[in-house]
Write a protein that binds this DNA or RNA. Structure first.
Lengths: 344, 344
DNA sequence: TTGTAAGCGTTATCAT
DNA sequence: ATGATAACGCTTACAA
């Protein structure tokens, strides 16, 4: 044993601190390490670490503390996260996987709540767009080793999903009962006397998972209520023409649709404006109900509101519990609420 | 070989590789290291590294290669990114700082393009919501050490912004000429015969930086065209009532506004629906022009389109150039285009 | 074709 | 109150 008995400050050949001391220009910029700070302050690396991390139970003389802080700032020292993570064995990075960066009203609030709550506990939330055709997840772990992976809504992490290393996993999908949303939509329209329903299904693939469940709920409700199954039409939020086509489809027959469940408020708005452009009015010539209760639609659209704040807190609590190996909480509140705004 | 002749294994009862070999259940899961893979395959750690990283200029026998890959998979080895980054001295993480997770149509495309382009070069784009009241940037560097920090649109990184360590910085703000957008809006309305303009200013703080510039452009154009300065009213996208109030303000006087520049299409849509809810029509009773040309407004709204794809490619190219210490490119194309859709 | 061994910057543990 | 030292897991000359 005693091999590799490197006597600490042991002068490895010379290279690094020589460079650091002289600060040669022309060379690629060397990182300022805590050892540099220690050397410049005339203290040990340990002391620098104590000061920089405010280690509890360590008494450092005010003089030393201030000296170290000052030199660190002067030299422009920034701790190198990978080194720290290697030493600690954990990264404190929470990776939120999303399907798309165009994050909507509700999800952005969930993400924000997660961000805020975890920040209070020393974690940092970073979000990443998952696109396996661009980069397989397995390749991703080479670059990021999160301590928790959160699959955000609309992202269906496969059941055999293997988190990297000793990371934990949390799935957001499944918390909000999307089938119940569909049922609520259909029941509302039925309660208003509509018997022939349409369903506006989003063609955006990132919404497919959720949309299927909502539609399934509508189907169930139609069955229970003894009315016909909905006329399902795809609507592409990136192409308003599809909304016009949907309207044509619904209103174009003798047995016309008189009430439409839109996958969400954004689609409902597009449908509204397609109606308006042909002189028809949503809630008058065709009943319409959305989901999300986004502000932009709050003047007139009936919708199913999702309590984003409660959802966000629940996700954040679950994340913390998972990180700390505690039992995840149970969801107490009902996240859904019907908001009636028109009189169709 | 008595490697790791550590004197103080006193703490963890069993030295790590013993644990790894036996794979005891019940113990907190130990990380499976490349050394574990090496040991289990009966090769050296170097060989494992060569295989796992497909190191060029290294010829590994097919037998060994497959053996290593198989054992790695069996043991569930996932490389620990911080260790790799520490060794390489760089993290290959590109941190995109955003003001808010509710990312709009245009910005989400820019971000996506950045993501795709950088992925091709081995980087990973992670986005983070900046909120200094939640966590100061300096604290962030303790947890993430990116090799590039990208300040996304709407985020005004202070001039004295200090990137962490040897990281580089790229500011997205400043690429799109927002003042020119305002000028184009005002000129369009003027060309349609409108002389008394209004401006819908977003109350969302994350848009303030951009909004100021767009409004300034409108002011300039009004001045140049010899018409009065715009009647500026705040509109909160989270509160449609503010849109109604804006309408009241613009239409409520003798000297009524007859054309409105909205900060963006989202606000324009809200204004449209506020108009509709009192029986008025945008483009008829009040001219309206937005910005972004978002799909949801493509049926009838006149707007200033921003070429998100070209912008995104430019940002991606700039990011790559910055990372590789090359001179950033020049922006060739004109990103703005007036899209006329109504006839007001 | 494969192995050896030296670090990367940080922090926990022990010692002084 | 402060210092010395040994890891953390990985990559890469240099050896064999």
């Amino acid at each position: 044993m005693a091999e590799s008995a490197t006597s600490d400050e042991g002068r490895r050949a010379v290279p690094r601190h020589e460079l650091a001391e002289t600060g040669r220009s022309g060379r690629p910029p060397r990182r300022v390490t805590s050892a540099d700070v220690a050397r410049a302050s005339g203290v040990s690396r340990a002391t620098v670490s104590y000061v920089l991390n405010d280690v509890p139970g360590r008494s450092i003389s005010t003089a030393t503390r201030e000296l170290v802080l000052r030199t660190a700032k002067e030299l422009g020292h920034v701790p190198f996260a990978p080194a720290r993570s290697l030493r600690l064995g954990t990264s404190n990075i929470v990776l939120a996987l999303v399907r798309d960066y165009a994050i909507g009203f509700v999800s952005s609030r969930v993400l924000r709540q997660l961000d805020v709550s975890l920040a209070e506990h020393g974690y940092v939330v970073l979000s990443h767009r998952v696109d396996e055709s661009v980069r397989p997840l397995d390749d991703l772990w080479r670059l990021v080793s999160p301590s928790l992976v959160v699959g955000m809504g609309g992202l269906n992490l496969p059941d055999d999903f293997v988190p990297p290393g000793d990371a934990k996993v949390l799935r957001v999908h499944g918390i909000v009962p999307h089938e119940e949303i569909g049922r609520m939509q259909a029941r509302y329209l039925h309660s208003r006397g509509h018997r022939r329903l349409g369903y506006a299904f989003p063609s955006n693939p990132s919404l497919e998972l959720i949309a299927r469940e909502r539609l399934e709920g509508v189907r169930q409700a139609c069955h229970e209520l003894g009315i016909g199954q909905p006329v399902v039409v795809d609507v592409d939020t990136d192409d308003p023409e599809t909304a016009s086509a949907a309207i044509d489809r619904w209103l174009g027959t003798d047995d016309a649709v008189d009430g439409v469940c839109a996958h969400n408020d954004e689609i409902a708005i597009i449908l509204s404006s397609a109606l308006a452009s042909r002189g028809l009015r949503a809630g008058h010539d065709l009943a319409l109900i959305g989901v999300d209760d986004i502000p932009a639609a709050r003047l007139s659209l009936t919708s199913i509101a999702i309590d984003a704040d409660a959802w966000g807190r629940f996700v954040a609590d679950s994340a913390l519990a998972t990180l700390e190996n505690r039992e995840p909480p149970h969801l107490e509140r009902d996240l859904l609420r019907l908001v009636v705004r028109d009189t169709a």
